[in-house]
Design a binder for these strands. Structure first.
Length: 504
RNA sequence: GGGGGCGUAGCUCAAUGGUAGAGCAACGGGCUUUUAACCCGUAGGUUCUGAGUUCGAGUCUCAGCGCCCUCACCA
């Protein structure tokens, strides 16, 4: 590569030469402000065919996304957040200003003014009479060519490398309107979730992200250090215990939308920091939370897509309530032939091995882990349509209340869609003595080497001792809901800046 | 963490172990209604990094870095 002293290539050197040429003729390469009268989309709509060659004058601003010079004439497209509009630059219209046009580059930000007309090929276009350079682009975006044909939009080249798309999300967004659309949809979804809960009397709150003691889920935390206090702090793995303290405090209905942090593996459905919605409702139980989730998620799908069905990989997902409710025990038994409440661990392990689990691996399963494997193997991945799996075994659910009709079970449900957990909810355990003994169990597991065991939170037990009303609680993975609604296969496509290794 | 794949021009990709190429982008010239504009010409490379095998490595071997897929764990 023929580089200048700063290590840039010849392509960038050419843009810098253009910048210098513009500065030499008194054109500032970076403006301060610009007032537009129309977005691109509005400009297109402002033209009527009866107007002929002299449509209304518009002032638009945006980034140059295409550029075709034919000598004394140049065509290009300007893109703003609403879309694109074609620009037409004529030497005899612009006079001396045409020299500026000759030093523009693809990706520059400009503002232009002029009347609308329709070209010979039928496209509504701005005949540029005034031009202002707003920001010079010194580095070309990795832009492919786009051809709009009758059978759809065709892409030629462009930014396709996933690593570059995530690391340089700004370039991905600048080049791909469809990427911008995902995050517009994400914002609309979160706005809907807030409004939904606000309308039902839930109070939005903020609880600590830096915590002296983490809890509320089983996961390994990130640890940091507070210098002034000289003590370790943990990034929260869940909001749960703080939100329930607020229920004790009488706020009755609270929710929080924020980031949780879990120091675990990353893959297509896991990012180390992710967005969780948790909400808690006093005097409610898990059946109330099921109604809430059903209304909230189906409402979100309708808000974002206009309908209640989604096409995903050839399957139609139907969000029309009510959704099927399958009991954990019956669902696993239907596929495995075993009732997990009465079957022996040996029987369950043998059944898993028959189903294809490695024998050596299966021999290590016991207790809650074994039940979890039975669930994963015989139920979870088979659930495609929105479905509530309800009444989980007690061993799997240390924070949930015991089922009022079966002491082996808890009042808990998960919402599954496409074989994935989207939400998890309980009738919350509010007996402080019971909670204390469950923390004791966790402490023993921690001593035994379980790095995900939950630490004993004495302050939380103290709060429960003051009396927490019966409460229904729910947590929902917002990134995963975005994935479902936007049809994304990787959580990285639902997060603007997904976690990446340090760039070398 | 285990297994598999990939890394070449600004972008997208080629190249039997034998002179590293193409399209687009860039630069120069031409063209006053084009739209993947077109025509003529020019330039552009530490083939991810480092060792090794070889007369000779983009290609083969080893190590490292990064990304993707997959399995395990977790939402």
């Amino acid at each position: 590569m023929n580089t200048d002293p700063e290590g840039r290539g010849y392509v960038e050197a050419a843009r810098r030469a253009n910048r210098e040429a513009l500065e030499a003729m008194g054109v500032a390469p970076f403006g301060y402000r610009f007032r537009r009268t129309h977005f691109a989309e509005d400009a297109l709509n402002a033209y009527q065919d009866t107007m002929g060659d002299r449509g209304p004058e518009v002032t638009v601003a945006g980034r140059l996304v295409s550029w075709r010079s034919t000598g004394k004439t140049t065509f290009g497209h300007l893109e703003d957040r609403s879309g694109r509009v074609q620009l037409y630059f004529r030497r005899d219209t612009l006079g001396d200003a045409f020299q500026v046009v000759e030093h523009l580059d693809l990706d520059d930000h400009i503002g232009v003014t002029g009347p609308l007309f329709r070209t010979r090929t039928g496209e509504v276009t701005v005949r540029v009479e005034q031009l202002e350079l707003l920001a010079k682009s010194l580095k070309p975006l990795p832009r492919g060519k786009v051809q709009q044909a009758e059978d759809g939009v065709h892409h030629f080249g462009g930014l396709t490398d996933p690593e570059t798309r995530y690391r340089q999300r700004y370039a991905d967004l600048a080049v791909h309107p469809e990427t911008r659309e995902v995050f517009v949809l994400r914002a609309r979804l979160i706005r809907f979730l807030r409004r939904f809960l606000d309308d039902r009397g839930f109070l939005e709150v903020e609880t600590p992200i830096l915590q002296p003691l983490y809890g509320g889920a089983s996961a390994r935390p990130f640890v940091t250090h507070h210098n002034a206090l000289d003590m370790p702090l943990y990034l929260r793995i869940a909001d749960e215990l703080y939100l329930k303290r607020l229920i004790v405090g009488g706020l009755e209905r609270v929710y929080e939308i924020g980031h949780d942090f879990r120091n675990e593996g990353m893959d297509r459905t896991h990012n180390p920091e992710f967005t969780m919605l948790e909400c808690y409702q006093a005097y409610a139980d898990y059946t109330d939370m099921m109604d809430l989730v059903e209304a909230m998620v189906s409402g979100a799908v309708e808000e974002c897509t206009g309908g209640l069905t989604l096409e995903r990989h050839g399957v139609t997902l139907d969000f029309t309530p009510p959704w099927p409710r399958v009991s954990f025990v019956a669902g696993v038994e239907a596929q495995s032939g075993l009732d997990v409440r009465t079957a022996s661990e040996v029987e369950m392990r043998e059944r898993l091995i028959e189903a294809g689990v490695d024998r050596e691996e299966a021999e290590t399963y016991a207790g809650g882990k074994l039940l979890d494997e039975m669930f994963k193997r015989f139920l979870e991945h088979r659930v495609v349509q929105p479905t509530f799996v309800i009444d989980y075994p007690k061993a799997l659910s240390p924070l949930a209340k015991v089922h009022r009709q079966d002491p082996a079970l808890t009042e808990r449900f998960e919402l599954l869609i496409q074989g994935r957990e989207l939400a998890n909810a309980f009738s919350e355990l509010n007996d402080p003595d019971d909670q204390r003994s469950r923390f004791e169990e966790q402490r023993q597991q921690q001593v035994a080497g379980d790095e995900e065991a939950q630490p004993y939170d004495q302050d939380y037990v103290r709060a429960l001792e003051y009396g927490m009303p019966p409460t229904g609680g729910m947590g929902l993975g917002v990134d995963r809901l975005v994935m479902v609604i936007a049809g994304l296969d990787s959580i990285r496509d639902a997060i603007l800046f997904p976690a990446m290794r340090k760039e070398s």
